[in-house]
């Protein structure tokens, strides 16, 4: 089942990348990043079955980093919303030249 799991993981990662590129809502883009992290976790778990349990330990670390990232990222989104009253990336163009 290794090939199927890796193919599924790659397809989910692709969906996450496409989601980041076609959406403008910052929260949805953030959730697409979480989907990509999940896709990578799936390939770690699938490979850990063949190469030993270290992959599962790595998934554990990825989940911790994802939790930290979600906390900080959502706090940034909230503070942006307070300034702009929007999470649409079209309205957040301070760095546009």
């Amino acid at each position: 089942m290794l090939a199927e799991a890796l193919a599924l993981s790659a397809a989910l990662f692709t969906i996450g990348v496409v989601g980041v590129l076609i959406r403008r809502n910052a929260i949805i883009i953030f959730m697409c990043v979480e989907l990509m992290l999940n896709a990578v976790n799936l390939s770690f778990v699938a490979l850990s079955r063949y190469y030993g349990a270290d992959g599962q330990v790595f998934v554990f670390f990825v989940m911790t980093v994802a939790a930290a990232e979600a906390a900080v990222g959502l706090a940034i989104i909230i503070s942006i919303f307070r300034h702009r009253q929007s999470v649409n990336l079209q309205n957040i163009n301070l760095l546009r030249g």
């Binding site: 599924l8 969906i15 996450g16 496409v18 989601g19 076609i22 949805i28 959730m31 697409c32 989907l35």
Partner: peptide, 8 residues
């Protein structure tokens, strides 16, 4: 896969 497509 279907849920991910529905999600985006």
């Amino acid at each position: 896969l279907a849920s991910a497509l529905a999600f985006v």
